[in-house]
């Protein structure tokens, strides 16, 4: 008997650590040496089949690591079932940033969220600044999953997502479309107040279609 699940996954981490590259490797099995920095957030889906014919469909939000999008993150993680927090093993500052994200998730996200800490760019091991021991120890202390990957070679990428798929509470109701998503949204970002902004300029030049 096959079971289907659907989960929301969010990727967080400093700009340029390789979040989009990891997702692209996972979803399309591709890699670009030059990727444009993500704007806002990008949505992708991918399904993983586990050994026992269980399928897990991930709805992935790949967020922008640039500082100016920082305030948008709650919108993505507030309903997420799992989060992959990425750092770059060649940049110790990116692990610091990852720690900040993890603290924020622990405080603000769903208490049952599954968090994976992911050290990317293992193909650049010669320039390694973050040791496996250090990251692993931190992950253990915080009760996080931990893995190293290379989006470039593909090493470890499917394994991370598969491990998350296995770890997610598979006892949850099958095809649980809302997942934890039916919750109220305290972190919802407020857009502009449209009622206050009725003075659209240049009415005369506006399109009349």
């Amino acid at each position: 008997m096959s079971k289907q699940y659907q989960f929301k996954l969010v990727l967080l981490g400093e700009s340029a650590v390789g979040k989009s590259s990891l997702v692209l490797r996972f979803v399309k099995d591709q890699f670009d040496d030059y990727r444009e920095s993500t704007i806002g957030a990008a949505f992708l889906t991918q399904t993983v089949t586990l050994d026992d014919q269980t399928t897990v469909k991930f709805e992935i939000w790949d967020t922008a690591g640039q500082e100016r999008y920082k305030s948008l993150a709650p919108m993505y993680y507030r309903n997420a079932n799992c989060a992959v927090v990425v750092y770059d093993i060649t940049q110790s500052s990116s692990l610091e940033k990852a720690r900040t994200w993890i603290r924020e998730l622990q405080r603000q996200a769903d208490p049952n969220i599954v968090i994976a800490l992911c050290g990317n760019k293992t193909d650049l091991a010669a320039r390694r600044q973050v040791s496996q021991e250090e990251a692993k120890k931190y992950a253990e202390e915080e009760g996080l999953m931990w893995a190293e990957t290379s989006a470039k070679t593909g090493e470890g990428v499917t394994e991370v997502f598969t491990a998350i798929a296995k770890k997610l509470p598979l006892t949850a109701s099958p095809a649980a479309r809302p997942g934890a998503g039916a919750r109220a949204s305290p972190g919802a970002r407020q857009g502009v107040d449209l009622n206050k902004q009725t003075t659209a300029q240049g009415q005369n030049e506006a399109c009349n279609c």
Partner: peptide, 21 residues
């Protein structure tokens, strides 16, 4: 390119429409 080459099925971005507000 940061939007059109992203290979994502959708993007959600904050944008200011300067003539609107």
């Amino acid at each position: 390119p940061s939007i059109s080459n992203s290979q994502a099925s959708a993007s959600w971005i904050p944008v200011c429409l300067p003539k609107f507000n």
